[in-house]
Structure formats: C-alpha cells, structure tokens
C-alpha cells in the first residue's frame, strides 16, 4: 500500500516535471525540470525493485548526459551577453519549482529508507542476476553496445572538430 502511494506521488512529480520541461521557453529552465523528471523515474525504478537500473538512471542519465547538455548550452552562449543572460537565469524564483519537486523525491526516499518500505515493492531483481544475464546470454549485445558507443564517440568528435578549430583560431586572433 505504501509502495502504491509513493508510486502515485512519484508519477505525479514525473509527469508535472515533464510538462514543465516541454513548456519552458528557456533551455536551461527546461533542463532543470528534465533532471527532476529523470530523477522521479529513477525513484520509480527503485519502487519497482530494479535497484541497479535506478542507480544507473541517476548516474548516467541525470548525471553524465545532462552534463553534456549543460556543456553545449554554455558553449552556444559565448558572447558579450552571457553575463546578463546568466543573471536572468539565476533570478530568484526560478529554482523554487525544481527544488520543491526534488524535496518531494527526497522525502520519499527518506520514508522508504526509514520505514523499510521497499519490502513490499514486489519482485526485486538484484544486480547479481542482471550481471549474470548480461555477461552470459547477452554477451553479444554488450559487444554491440560497445561498438555503438565507439561509433557515437567517433561521430561526435568528427562533428565537433571544425567547431573547436574555429573557436580556437578565434581565440588566438
């Protein structure tokens, strides 16, 4: 019962954050809400008993991929107006919505840890089972995923290289 209530609250947070994300005019504000949406989905993974996937969701999606977005947004705003823009982005009030949603998620995790509520979240598939399956029957898929990541790396480097060169020469001149 506790798991169901937590699931409803987290789903509401995820849907609200996603709606706010697609309606923000500013990309950075949208990014804040997108991080909250991903964190809420991570909590849902935890409630569903997929602890390993929940950890990966937070580390890779809300961590690494969002850092890429932040890098690109900051790279595209090189210029004289950047400081004023930052001031507008950091005006008080913008951070309140995402902070409130993050607080809700934090309280949920606190409740889960204190009350031990994850006992009734159904079938827990732990990371040991995932690892055994990953490097047993799915070994070929892991190899293919590594090839995909290599192709993505080469593609991103190839696409970004002329831009970097132009920025560097602009900086020297």
């Amino acid at each position: 019962m506790l798991a169901l209530i937590l699931f409803y609250i987290t789903s509401a947070v995820a849907i609200f954050a996603t709606v706010m994300m697609i309606t923000r005019l500013n990309a950075v504000h949208g990014l804040l809400y997108l991080i909250l949406s991903l964190l809420a989905v991570g909590v849902i993974f935890f409630l569903l008993g997929a602890h390993f996937a929940a950890v990966l969701e937070v580390i890779i999606y809300a961590g690494a991929i969002m850092v890429l977005f932040v890098f690109v947004i900051m790279m595209l705003n090189l210029g004289q107006k950047t400081i004023e823009q930052e001031r507008i982005w950091l005006q008080p009030g913008i951070w309140r919505g995402p902070s409130l949603l993050a607080l809700i998620l934090f309280v949920e995790m606190f409740v889960i840890i204190v009350l031990g509520g994850n006992a009734e979240t159904g079938q827990v598939v732990n990371s040991k089972q995932v690892g055994i399956a990953l490097f047993g029957p799915y070994l070929l898929a892991v190899e293919l995923a590594s090839m995909l990541l290599l192709a993505g790396l080469v593609g991103a480097y190839h696409l970004g290289k002329p831009m970097l060169k132009a920025t560097r020469s602009r900086g020297h001149s």
Binding site: L68, F69, V72, L148, L149, G152, G155, A156, Y157
Partner: peptide, 8 residues
C-alpha cells in the same frame, strides 16, 4: 550515443 552525435 544519440546525445553525443545530436549535440555535435
């Protein structure tokens, strides 16, 4: 991979 190429 998609984000890397897309942002590039």
């Amino acid at each position: 991979a998609e984000v890397g190429v897309g942002l590039g």
